[in-house]
Structure formats: C-alpha cells, structure tokens
Amino acid sequence: MADGNQMTLRKPQKPFYFNTSENLLRIGRQRAATLAELLEALRSCPEDSIFQHTFRTLQEHHFIRQGFSNDFAHWSVSACNEPVLAEQLASVDVREFTAIEGLRNRMVQIVDQFLKENPRAASHSGHEPFYFCASDIVVLPTSFVADSLPAFLDGLKKVSIHSIHHHFIEARLRLHLMSNDFSQWLEEELGLTHTADLIERIDIYTNTMEGVRQQIARSVEQVLN
C-alpha cells in the first residue's frame, strides 16, 4: 500500500541529521601493470583501496548517468582493452554489499574466472598501470536537521551531492544492512515502509546523483501530497 494513503504522519522521535563526508585521496604502494597483477593486488590491497575504487569513485563521477561503474572496470577497458571483463566488473552493484570483504571477493572472483578462460590476457601490459589509492575520510555535519517530513524534504533538496552519497550509498557499510540512512529513518521514525522501499530500489547506475536526489524527493513529495 502506498504510504500516501496512510493517516496523519507520526512525529519522529529522532531527528534526521544530514551529514556529509569529504575525502582525501592517498596514493597507495601497489600498482598493477597487467591483469594478473591486478588480480594479485585485488587479493592483497587494503580494504580502503577497494572502497576507494568502487564506492568513492562513484561519488567522484556522480554526474555520469551511464557508462561509469568502478575504476577496475574502467581500467580493464581503457588500459587493457578487455571489454568483456570490463562489463562483468561494471555489473557489480556496490549496494549489494554491506562489507568491503564481500565486494573484494566478488571482484577477485570475476577477474580470476576471466583469466582462467582467457589465460593469454593475464600478462598483457595495459597502456598505463592501475594505481591503487585509498581515501582518508572526514565526516562533517551540515546545517540541516529534520524533525518532520517537510523539513527532511527541505534538507534533502539543499544538501550537497556528497551528503546524498554519504547517506544513500556509503551508509550500508556503516549500517551493515541492505538499506540506507534515508530509508531507515523514514521507516523507523515515520513508518513509511513503502516509501523507504521505493527509495532503496532507485538505480544508481542509470542515474546521476542529482537524479537520485530528485527521485528520493519525488517519493517523499508523494507522501506529503
């Protein structure tokens, strides 16, 4: 049942604090010149490198609607000219993972399988190496705190794209749940289960982050109207 048909919205017990996160890119020690080296480094690199090249890079390219998924996929095609591997890596949805280790295992599995099927591809040098990086992250408050659904909508429309990414995409690594901060709050504090579910199902890979914001806002507006 659509949440808009429910009776008067209840008052949230806890406000929604809009935060944001900013990151500084740290250049790692590992680099890969071939797909075999990429596989090796994927197995051994720090978790924050996996995070950087999947979750974070998605934020850095938030304005691209289609065609950019993660750095491993991008390097596979742009430097190694392996479009099949690139498509397989690009199909990995970071939101299916609530911990980095699972995401790492998936990436390793894809590259490993590809190299088993295409052993000659393992040692071809890419046009340029893959440089493993990581992020040092600082979480910051914003001036927006929502104690009602209209205030939530107002904050949603005014915070930065980084804040949307922080709450909508990175949240599952904090929550260790297949959800996001917005859906969690709407469901737990306002009982808006359907709206929470609609928001959780937004496709981040066919939308810009601004598009994601607008879709979330539309879902909330439907409740308010």
Binding site: E22, L140, H162
Partner: peptide, 12 residues
C-alpha cells in the same frame, strides 16, 4: 559550487 559546498569548507 553552491551554498552546501561553501558550508562544508566552513565546517572543515
């Protein structure tokens, strides 16, 4: 860059 990003600089 928008008010939100200017605010982020001030918070930082």
């Amino acid at each position: 860059i928008g008010q939100a990003d200017v605010d982020a600089l001030r918070f930082l």
